[in-house]
């Protein structure tokens, strides 16, 4: 099956700066992927290039089987909602009407439901909205478009925790009925952890982690106890972080543990603490970056 999004060798250079460095990654239909990474890692550039709002310096991007650049047929099946999305000086209702003309799968019914859920006044000029409400307008457009490719780039500037929860709940509910390819770039990893099937982490323009979310979660454990016991247990396993406090040590082990491992840890009087997806991702990407650095020196 052709992936919905196929990116190969994508590089984007600015003057003296490489924003994306030889990125190759595919996204299948009907998945929700978390696009993770620090500020300036290249996430926004990546999403903008997918949406043909920016152009590659090198490499190939296919969305729904074709290049998105100046390709109306593809662009109408794709929506990108950005952080601090700006709108022309019109009312909320007009934004939605314009979107309904552009997106063939637009659901007016869903848009109306979402307006109510976010308590958005359709008659108010977008300019007069608070930052959070403007973000909510973007989310309404992004979900009601029901675009086959739905890209959210940190869509919740200024949104409070309650409104973010509404976003997640509505995304799950509508995605369940109308599966599509969703890429969600976010810093709030733990908040969305349950939504994600896959996590792709970009660091300094490169993909440093690309894995099933449940695999990452299950594969990362903090092991703590007496220094010799911890070191005995960790020997031969990937260790991503090691801290000591007097005779006590704590390491992050980056491979899945078997029942036998757990029993052994009990015998050694070690404490095993599973890491949250957010912590796991931080360690896994640091570990991957470390391995890469070692590899390049070899």
């Amino acid at each position: 099956m052709t992936p919905t999004i196929a990116v190969s060798g994508l590089t984007r250079r600015y003057r003296g700066h490489v924003a994306l460095d030889d990125v190759t990654v595919d996204f299948e239909d009907a998945t929700i992927t978390g696009l993770l990474g620090r500020n300036g890692a290249g996430k926004t550039t990546f999403l903008r290039i997918l949406a043909a709002q920016e152009f590659p310096s090198a490499g190939d991007v296919r969305v729904l089987g074709a290049s998105p650049i100046e390709n109306d047929a593809v662009l109408r099946r794709m929506v990108l909602i950005r952080e601090d999305q700006s709108y022309p000086d019109i009312r909320v209702g007009h934004v939605l009407r314009a979107a309904s003309w552009f997106y063939p799968n637009w659901s007016g019914e869903l848009a109306a439901t979402l307006l109510r859920a976010f308590d958005l006044p359709a008659g108010r000029p977008v300019k007069k909205l608070s930052r959070g409400m403007r973000s909510a307008v973007g989310i309404v457009v992004g979900l009601a478009a029901r675009a086959e490719v739905t890209l959210f780039d940190e869509p919740y500037a200024g949104l409070d925790a309650v409104a973010r929860q509404i976003f997640y709940d509505q995304l799950i509910a509508d995605y369940a009925e109308h599966p599509r390819t969703v890429l969600l770039s976010t810093h709030l990893i733990d908040e969305v952890a349950g939504l994600l099937e896959r996590v792709v982490m970009i660091d300094r323009g490169r993909v440093v982690l690309d894995a099933d979310a449940d695999t990452v979660r299950g594969a990362t454990t903090a092991v703590s106890g007496a220094v010799p016991a911890v070191d005995t247990f960790a020997a031969g396993r990937p260790v991503w972080d090691r801290r000591t406090l007097a005779s006590h040590a704590s390491v992050v082990v980056g491979s899945p543990l078997t029942d036998g491992d757990r029993a052994w840890a009990r015998e050694l009087n070690l404490t095993l603490t599973p890491l949250s997806l957010q912590q796991a991702v931080v360690h896994a990407s640091a570990g991957a970056a470390g391995e890469r650095a070692e590899g390049s020196h070899a």
Binding site: A30, I172, A176, G194, L195, E197, D214
Partner: peptide, 15 residues
Amino acid sequence: SSNELAAFYRINPAT
């Protein structure tokens, strides 16, 4: 159903 579980636990329906 998977959709009911997804809504209740706030997780991906595939999960």
